[in-house]
């Protein structure tokens, strides 16, 4: 299982590169944030009317927050209980206050079929909440699942992640500007992070505490 773990941000980068390459600038910006900050910021409400803002309150239907939040949410359900997650997040917050050192990135363990289905439902639900079209949501969900499944077939990539277990988050954006004529695979091979089992993740499939209802299907 250790060999098949993959970081959430890697999954997000690959999916966005595939289905919404125009959002890669956002990923470049988010690369500087640790996972907890990124999730917190992406999940926050939209500031529609700030003083001296434009104020017409329009919101773009973006893929990045949908994928990141859905995968993160599903991962949290799979690898731990809600209470554990809240404690972990509080720890992250405290760590940020006192040490400001980056917490380890969230990793996804190898998933069963049921867990993959859970991830897919999570993506569909999140996409519906964020105003994406059902067809677009389905494409994104499929891309996420495909990415997770493909990862299981590439165990050789796991070894690279072991070299830097506690290092800072790796930049998500490609090192060179992406050509605008279409999606292309990332320059570097995917580097799954350390084993998820170190954080106490369950070995076998686990039922989510609050099963999400797929929207738009």
């Amino acid at each position: 299982m250790d060999a098949k773990a993959v970081r959430v941000r890697d999954v997000v980068r690959d999916v966005v590169t595939e289905v919404a390459p125009e959002e890669l600038p956002l990923l470049a910006g988010l690369a500087g944030f640790d996972d907890a900050t990124a999730v917190q910021r992406l999940g926050g409400g939209v500031r529609r009317r700030e003083p001296l803002g434009f104020g017409l309150g329009e919101v773009a239907a973006l893929v990045t927050p949908v994928v990141w939040l859905a995968v993160d949410q599903a991962t949290q359900q799979i690898v731990g209980t809600w209470v554990q997650n809240r404690v972990a997040r509080t720890g992250v917050a405290l760590r940020r206050v006192f040490r400001r050192s980056a917490p380890p990135p969230v990793v996804i363990p190898a998933l069963t079929r049921e867990q993959l289905a859970l991830v897919r439902r999570s993506v569909l639900t999140m996409a519906a909440q964020r105003g994406l079209e059902p067809e677009r949501a389905a494409v994104i969900a499929d891309a996420v699942v495909t990415r997770l499944v493909l990862d299981e077939t590439e165990p050789e990539t796991a070894a690279a992640a072991e070299a830097e277990p506690d290092g800072p988050p790796e930049p998500l954006a490609p090192p060179t500007p992406v050509r605008p004529n279409g999606p292309e695979p990332p320059d570097a091979p995917v580097q799954p992070n350390e084993a998820a089992g170190r954080d106490g993740g369950p070995e076998g499939p686990e039922q989510p505490d609050e099963p999400t209802r797929p929207a738009g299907t």
Partner: peptide, 14 residues
């Protein structure tokens, strides 16, 4: 500067 986490399509001066 850019707020990469914001889905809004606006901007603000300060």
């Amino acid at each position: 500067v850019v707020d990469p986490a914001s889905q809004a399509t606006g901007a603000v001066a300060f």
